[in-house]
Structures are given as C-alpha cells and as structure tokens.
C-alpha cells in the first residue's frame, strides 16, 4: 500500500468543508457550555435544596454517561417530542449540554476560590446581589478558570467526530464519504487524524501559556 498524494489533493475540498463545520460546532458548543455551565454552577449554590438537588442529580447523570448515547437519545427522541432540529443543531446541543456539566465544576471551583474578603467587601458596600456577582465575584472567578475552560474546549474539539454518528458532515464524516466514493481509506482518514493534532497541539500550548500568565 503506497501513499497517494493525488488522493490527498482530491480530498481537500471536502476536507475544508469539514473543518468549517467542525469549527462551527466547536464555537457554538463552547458558547452553549459556558453559558449553561454558569447556570448550573449558580443553581448549585442556590439556597433552596429543591433547586440544588435536582440540578446536582441531572448534571452528575449527564457527566457520567457517554456523549454518543446522549447524542442518539436527542437525535431520535427530540423528533418524537415534536422538536425538529437538524443533525448539526442536535449535535451541537448535545455536545454543549454534555460539556456544560464539566464547565459547571470549573465555575464552581473558580467561585469558591474567590477570597471571602471580597464577599464581605461587597456586603459592606451594600452592593445588590446581581452587582456582587457581575462586578466582584465573576470577573475574578473567570480570570482564574480561563485555562481550565480552554482545556475543555480542546477536549470538545476531540469529541466533535462523534457527531459523524448522526451524519453531521464534520471532518470525520467527510473522510468517510470520500472513502466510500473513491475506496481510498488511508489518505482521507490520516489527513483528518493529523489535522486534529495540528489544531489541538498549538491550542494546548496556548492554554499552557495562558495558565502561566494568569498564575502570576
């Protein structure tokens, strides 16, 4: 079996389409997980146990079960409930929801790490609750947790191929379609594998630099 560069060239148009879809999933999925994660984290700090308890159970459940099965669940069950989403939208929703249970943990750690004096200062200045959160606590918490969130974005990138399972045309699915059309298995799949390393490695270096900068 020899390596055929012309097969790589033939794969390029599909490959770039796949890269765009992968990045789209990644950006929307990250935004969703950052937002939902914050909601879970705040709910877990709620006064009422009727909020804390169910949110805790649901996030624990989502975090300890496979994304792939959740993906199929949403893909097949949402239409039964009368919600018609495209495969791409369902996939992005699933990945964002799954990772929001991780980012919730990150937010929680970040909020807990804000010194108690900051809370007391906010009370002393009689800031209303929403100002305490938006002007005092969250800016300090987010600064601390940015690297950890970055690591989950990279992890999310590496989970985007799972969406090929429901037919989303991201990188892996594009390589499968290319292989099905040309019977070239080696080149498209190898290109996709290397593309992941080429995106993930610089991204992880970036996160490490960020970590060092913020640690000062």
């Amino acid at each position: 079996m020899t390596w055929d560069w012309s097969a790589v060239a033939d794969f390029m148009p599909r490959f770039w389409d796949g890269v765009l879809v992968t990045l789209q999933i990644l950006v929307l999925g990250s935004l969703l997980s950052f937002t939902l994660g914050l909601v879970w984290a705040l709910a877990l700090r709620s006064e009422s146990r009727f909020v804390r308890w169910p949110v805790g159970l649901v996030t624990e459940f989502i975090r300890n079960t496979p994304l792939l099965v959740q993906l199929f669940f949403l893909f097949f069950v949402l239409p039964e409930w009368g919600v018609q989403f495209s495969a791409l939208a369902t996939g992005t929703l699933a990945i964002g929801l799954h990772y929001s249970t991780y980012t919730a943990q990150v937010y929680r750690a970040g909020i807990d790490a804000v010194p108690a004096g900051q809370w007391e200062a906010a009370t002393a200045l009689s800031l209303p609750a929403h100002r305490t959160w938006t002007a005092v606590i969250l800016p300090q918490a987010v600064r601390r947790i940015a690297p950890a969130l970055g690591n989950y974005v990279i992890a999310m990138l590496k989970d985007t191929p799972l969406l090929a399972g429901i037919g989303v045309l991201e990188m892996l699915q594009q390589s499968r379609l290319e292989s099905a059309a040309t019977f070239q298995y080696t080149e498209p799949l190898t290109v996709v594998g290397i593309a992941f390393i080429l995106i993930a490695y610089p991204a992880s270096l970036l996160v490490r630099t960020l970590e060092r900068r913020l640690a000062r």
Partner: peptide, 21 residues
C-alpha cells in the same frame, strides 16, 4: 502529545481501516 492531540474515535477508525492495508 500525539495521542492526546488526536481524537480517540479517529484513531479507532484509523487502526481499523488504515492499518490493515
């Protein structure tokens, strides 16, 4: 770095479809 950088699913497909030939 290589094995953390790539996706487990892509690696699995690669071992299954590319390695045999």
């Amino acid at each position: 770095e290589v094995f953390r950088g790539t996706s487990a699913l892509v690696l699995m497909f690669w071992l299954f479809f590319v390695l045999p030939p």
